[in-house]
Design a binder for these strands. Structure first.
Lengths: 164, 164
DNA sequence: ATTTTACGTCAGTCATGTTGACATATATTT
DNA sequence: AAATATATGTCAACATGACTGACGTAAAAT
């Protein structure tokens, strides 16, 4: 541990610590998403479909533009995925009541079943990690990940997550 | 807060807590990667190129198959990106000394510069999140993310991260 | 009445992943 | 020494999910 770098350069340990934190995020995210991907594969859906199902499931009645804002993709990109989900009966649209230009999005029964299936698998994975790590660690996880969200829209993102 | 769901279903709060943790990971990862993507864009490189530069930079002399094992992509996918990086002078290969079938990978000067540039931006982001969150939270972050890594190769992954 | 907004859609392109087949050099095993 | 296995490269075809740009339509706002 007392090698040249750490003796001569007090920033070295910190840099190394940060590099490790970055790789940890990479590996954790890779394995976290792998489970969902496997399930979705059976339906010939990809990660993009999952994201739509996930967010529509958690925000029933949300509009297309809200969804675009969350996903940060173009409407053309979304449309291919979304119209596919609608055609195959996992998502449905209803005209907005106040503003009839809006298309409000809902999961169908089938959509809800798939959402549950994938979500359950992911929740179990996270629940295991939480259980092993303990309550205090969970609080730390939340704090750090919150800090990784871009400041300029952190509040917006947190509001959406917490659905205040 | 005392709505029907939480009164009748003691699992509801836990489920909600887990769903929030999942979305938090999604948003944090999205914003974390956005910074690097921007820099890479100036070089006409994508996230795939970055991953190669990152891991080669952290494991100088690693072989192609080690890299494949980390990235979990096919050699054909890797090859397109890798040969591009070599052609453009960011990565170089040297024949393995013990096993001359192996191609050991190194960053060139230019490669190292780019790696530093992207890494510095990412480290600053993480450093800010760590600073805001505090030391205890950082420990929790590590614990939870470690737990999210697939058990079957968690030790392998951790060894690579910590470079023991 | 005009303009803006929310959404849909067509067409083409790019990056990055996949499978499958085959080649070549070197190491290992028989 | 010959046969086999391994590490790597490469060609070809294809899928997914991003992108840009252009255009259309209905409804809301001015």
């Amino acid at each position: 541990m007392t090698d040249v770098k750490s003796v001569n350069n007090p920033l070295f340990l910190r840099e190394e610590e940060l590099r490790q934190a970055i790789e940890l995020l990479f590996f954790a995210y890779r394995d976290f998403t792998a489970g969902a991907d496997n399930i979705l594969e059976d339906y010939n859906f990809g990660r993009a479909h999952h994201r739509v199902i996930h967010f529509v499931g958690r925000n029933e009645g949300m509009t297309v533009s809200e969804l675009l804002d969350i996903l940060r993709i173009t409407k053309q990109s979304l449309n291919r995925v979304l119209s596919n989900l609608i055609k195959r009966g996992f998502v449905e649209q209803r005209q907005g009541e106040e503003d009839r230009r809006q298309r409000c999005l809902y999961l169908t029964e089938e959509g809800r079943l798939l959402e549950q299936k994938v979500s359950r698998a992911q929740r179990e994975l996270v629940a295991n990690a939480f259980r092993e790590a303990g309550g205090e660690a969970v609080a730390g996880y939340r704090k750090v990940l919150t800090g990784l969200i871009d400041e300029t829209h952190r509040d917006t993102a947190l509001n959406r997550i917490l659905k205040t």
